[in-house]
Design a protein around this nucleic acid. Structure first.
Lengths: 336, 336
DNA sequence: CTGAAAGCGCTTACAG
DNA sequence: CTGAAAGCGCTTACAG
């Protein structure tokens, strides 16, 4: 079928190449890996390359791993590839970074199930992973599964309170600050904040950022401008009346879904965005933010970067140890 | 640190277990794998298990693979883990199914870049994958990368025209049919269809389904009820006027984003859903469909099932060969 | 400049 | 009932 002489049943090995090239397997290994110390004649070199070519030889990465004692794998256990578009970006970032350093990602989706988690970690350990990235789909505190201790671990988008395990998380406070600063820069002084009812690093961090930005701008913190609602469309929609009653000229929403609900509430009252009121989101959830009318200005959760930084930390490429905060960049669209 | 005596630098091997249990490695292998033919005394068996326990032994899956000549890996190359929440579900389904049969998924994200794709496939081949799932984030025709021929392949959410490569795709026509049937069942007779301007299996398939459902209900196909717009919010929004002018009482939208735009257009005209007009989406895009006001009825693209079926096909667990169509189930919410 | 040989951690006939 | 030995496909000192 192919001209390479490839045969699925009987893979060609280094031995076959050696035979075809009339050299030893040691020599083949040396030229294929371009070993520094090895002095192989131009002639032999060419013969090996020709044989590789004509036989369609591919090194067996597993055998290589075994004899070298190093692993090409990095494990990524995620609690929800499924429930959210976010996890995808963490995987994406981790994968790109892993590849860049010659590693391959082994991903496992656990749906938060502890026993699946245990199996996934065991599987990774048996495959001799270099280390494991343990990630959650939203920033939170976790209990570290005990078996994770048996290898190098870094936490991604989560952290363990009383632990010394390195973690990389989004900088919620900085995010809340830029969100507010964007509104400030657009000339607003009376900025409402629809925060979430759910206790979380996002809840406290974004609020702290909001306050910090206000303070830096010389504005007093006004409690009557901050609300708590469910962090979804329903919450944003319900918040509309209160926000309007507060006479705010701009609203910083805890996330894009809240903003989406607020949009609905505002539209029902025939209020225009941003002419009548400016709105700022958080998360930069693709399907929502870019496609609302008008497109929503927001701040991005740096999922891709979280995954990539996790791999770098794991491989010891980043000097930082312990909690590493990744900043959340503002995304400017037309809602303010 | 742990009581297991685990030592990261010097993994414990089968040899260590053998020594500790006072048996040969062959015996250890037999009891650990619970080999059928092997008759090992209760005594030796217990000693082995104890040694495994106390040493914290974990078999080296890579070595096992090498000596057995079988691979525990299945590759999944995806063109866009990133750009869409959908790919995540394909991965999820493939992974669950792979695990179920003792395989581990090696995933690679190529962003559609041909050279990355080549590298990804080469990497998988070198890791001796059992086969490769090649997937796209939306249903379409593709050119099969030549190196894919070097192993078993199944196409997921895509297909190759002139090829004999097995593929699993969503059943667009059946999807279009149920979408229309749902509207019919709700009592509508004048059903508009906002189709996409983009030529694709979705475009033709969903239209065919729409026509089939109408025909089955004894309704004539009325060209003036079908429109073509960009398959996004902007398209849906723009379609509003024409849809209204057609005096349809219900609208089947090519996808959820179109429905989202239509919602906006309808709301601006103070029209209520579903009282004034019913709307049906397609895709069941989480963030959108479930959270629109009112929640959108739609039909789901079976991504999880696509991934799972792909693995089954690859492993020869499904007898079907060639193109396999997965049906798209209706999701009932409150927009009709 | 090149090859023979040991070894990576397992599995699997084969003997006994 | 159990072990010695060969082998999976590589890499890596070590000799020459």
């Amino acid at each position: 079928m192919t001209t390479s002489g490839y045969d699925r049943a009987h893979a060609v090995t280094m031995r076959d190449v050696a035979k075809a090239a009339g050299v030893s397997v040691a020599t083949v290994s040396h030229v294929i890996n371009d070993k520094a110390g090895a002095r192989i004649g131009e002639d032999a070199r060419r013969r090996v390359h020709d044989a590789v070519e004509s036989l369609g030889y591919r090194p067996n990465a597993l055998a290589k791993t075994l004899s070298r004692g190093s692993s090409p794998f990095i494990g990524l256990v995620a609690d929800a590839i499924a429930t959210t578009p976010f996890a995808g970006q963490i995987i994406h970032g981790a994968q790109d970074e892993a590849w860049k350093h010659g590693y391959v990602l082994l991903v496992a989706n656990t749906e938060g199930n502890a026993s699946v988690e245990r199996d996934a970690i065991a599987m990774m350990l048996e495959h001799q992973v270099r280390g494991i990235l343990y990630s959650t789909w939203f920033h939170r505190e976790i209990e570290v599964p005990p078996t994770l201790r048996q290898t190098d671990t870094v936490l991604v988008d989560c952290f363990a309170a009383d632990e010394d395990i390195p973690a990389v998380v989004p900088d919620e406070e900085q995010g809340g600050r830029v969100a507010t600063e964007e509104l400030l820069a657009a000339g607003h002084q009376r900025i409402a904040f629809i925060n979430t009812t759910t206790p979380s690093p996002a809840q406290t961090g974004r609020l702290a950022g909001y306050r910090a930005a206000l303070a830096a701008a010389g504005l007093a913190y006004d409690e009557s401008l901050v609300f708590q609602f469910e962090p979804d469309q329903g919450g944003g929609y319900s918040a509309t009346a209160k926000v309007l009653a507060s006479h705010a000229t701009a609203v910083f929403c805890h996330n894009d879904r809240v903003a989406m609900g607020l949009y609905d509430g505002l539209r029902e009252r025939s209020l225009r965005i941003p002419e009548d009121i400016a709105v700022m989101g958080f998360d930069n959830q693709d399907v929502i933010a870019a496609h609302l009318r008008p497109p929503l200005s927001t701040v991005a959760l740096p999922h891709y970067e979280l995954g990539a930084a996790g791999v770098r930390l794991l491989l010891g490429l980043d000097t930082t140890r312990q909690a590493m905060r990744i900043s959340c960049p503002p995304i400017r669209r037309s809602s303010l």
